[in-house]
Simulated scan of single mutants.
Amino acid sequence: MNEITVQELKEKLDKGEDFQLIDVREEFEYETSNLGGQLIPLGGILIEADKVSKDKPVVVMCRSGKRSAAAIMQLQQLGYSNLTNLKGGILAWAAEVDPTLNVY
């Protein structure tokens, strides 16, 4: 499985690269803190798979990287090959990029 570090994600965001960021946490988690990605909770990832781009790179994130890895495995069964997991999730982002971010 492809992975990206939070520093690499920050570079992509800073450069304005064209990619999709999917957050597979629950709505209450997203409301606490998010990086501006599209919210598609893990439980609905297959139902809402049509919202995940096949035409550009997609970074999938969660709290720690475990749920996003599970989402990627599910989507790969539908033929997705453009997915990258955010290593360490939002916890790593808060620890390494933005310590002011609310985490839980």
Score class of each variant (00 low, 15 high):
Glu48Arg: 15
Leu101Ala: 05
Gln38Ser: 09
Leu35Cys: 01
Glu11Gln: 15
Ile72Thr: 01
Gln76Cys: 08
Ala69Pro: 02
Arg67Lys: 13
Lys12Cys: 08
Ile4Leu: 15
Ala49Lys: 15
Ala49Leu: 03
Gln74Phe: 13
Leu13Ile: 15
Gly89Lys: 04
Val52Ser: 10
Val60Trp: 09
Pro41Met: 13
Asp23Gln: 14
Ile72Ala: 04
Gln20Cys: 12
Ile45Val: 14
Asn85Pro: 10
Ala71Glu: 06
Ser33Asp: 04
Gln74Gly: 04
Gly44Trp: 13
Arg63Tyr: 14
Arg25Gln: 12
Ile22Lys: 07
Val60Met: 14
Gly79Ser: 11
Leu101Val: 03
Asn34Met: 07
Arg67Ile: 11
Leu35Phe: 05
Glu8His: 02
Leu46Thr: 05
Gln77Trp: 06
Ala95Ile: 01
Tyr104Cys: 03
Asn85Gln: 01
Lys10His: 06
Trp93Gly: 01
Gln76Gly: 11
Val52Lys: 11
Thr100Leu: 00
Val58Thr: 07
Ala69Lys: 07
Asp55Tyr: 03
Gly65Ser: 00
Gln38Ala: 09
Leu9Lys: 04
Ser64Thr: 14
Glu27Phe: 09
Ile45Leu: 05
Glu96Met: 14
Glu27His: 11
Gln38Asn: 14
Glu27Leu: 15
Lys12Phe: 11
Glu3Cys: 05
Trp93Arg: 01
Glu17Ala: 15
Asp55Met: 09
Lys10Arg: 15
Glu26Arg: 06
Pro99Asp: 12
Phe19Trp: 13
Lys51Thr: 05
Ala71Val: 05
Ser81Gly: 08
Leu78Ala: 11
Gly89Leu: 04
Val58Ser: 11
Thr5Arg: 01
Asp50Pro: 03
